[in-house]
Simulated scan of single mutants.
Amino acid sequence: MKFISWNIDSLNAALTSDSARAELSRGVLNTIIDLDPAVLAIQETKLSPNGPTKKHLDILNEKFPDYKRVWNSSTEPARKSYAGTMFLYKNHLNPMVSYPEIDAPNTMDAEGRIITLEFDHFYLTQVYTPNSGTNLVRLKERQIWDEKYADYLTALDEKKVVIATGDFNVAHKEIDLAHPRRNRLSAGFTDEERQGFTNLLAAGFTDTFRYLHGDVPEVYSWWNQRAKTSKINNSGWRIDYWLVSDRAADKVLVSEMVDSGMRQDHTPLLFEMALD
């Protein structure tokens, strides 16, 4: 089966804005459509608590006519039009859908950060991991999130093979970002966040990109859009992942970045696996 994951940084902007960046986003969507995934996972939808509007749905129906949709939006007491996730999956698929809460701190459980699809022989779950924020104001809460999320995946793994994707908001090792020394105390590359990801993998999960490609350098999934030359110079970070249960790693066929052209921010991730 073929899957794609993408932090879209506002579904509304990608579908309805007239900006130059939105045009680039729609180009990426067209690339995804051409790849024809069985499932598309989208993070940072930034939709209202009511989810997509009729206009959004009409456009999605036009672009993805053979797909069903489920979403999880940020709701009170969390900020509105913040975070959020969505799955689009082929009409012939009939997974059980859940919107897990993991006993995360503050408003994190209300921010629409996780959706899980349960199939007969595996779970497919996506996450938009909380960012530790400017001056690391959310780092302690992020550490608790990492522990709770690892517990959640481990519980799923006891029942079926787990495929987990999304924006994990951490560059795991120095090879996973262009300037590790410069960013040692930046959100997404603190010792605490990196250790949290190490702990997650140690709980029984495989980073499929590294499993297939080894320590290939200078391959990233995110480039800062505030730095105009970040993508031209490939000053990026690898913070988006496809993980699988260790026992299923040998079934992974493809785990790679999709070319998003000149669009900065996140690029989609393509994943293929031999599944029953």
Rank of each mutant, 00 (worst) to 15 (best):
N7Y: 06
S10W: 02
S10L: 01
A13C: 04
L15A: 11
S17H: 14
D18G: 12
R21H: 11
E23T: 13
S25N: 06
T53K: 07
K54A: 14
I59P: 00
L60Q: 04
N72Y: 10
F87V: 06
L93K: 10
M96T: 13
V97M: 11
Y99K: 15
P100R: 14
D109R: 11
G112W: 07
R113A: 01
I114M: 03
T116D: 11
T116M: 09
E118F: 02
F119A: 05
T129C: 12
T129L: 06
T134K: 01
T134V: 09
N135D: 15
V137K: 15
L139C: 00
D146M: 14
K148L: 06
L153S: 07
V162K: 07
V162G: 01
I163N: 04
A164F: 08
D167V: 00
V170K: 06
R182E: 15
N183K: 11
R184A: 07
G188M: 01
E192Q: 15
R194T: 04
T198C: 03
N199R: 13
F205W: 08
Y220T: 08
D240K: 05
L243V: 03
L243W: 08
D246R: 13
D246H: 15
D250V: 05
T267Y: 09
T267K: 09
P268E: 09
L269K: 06
L275S: 14
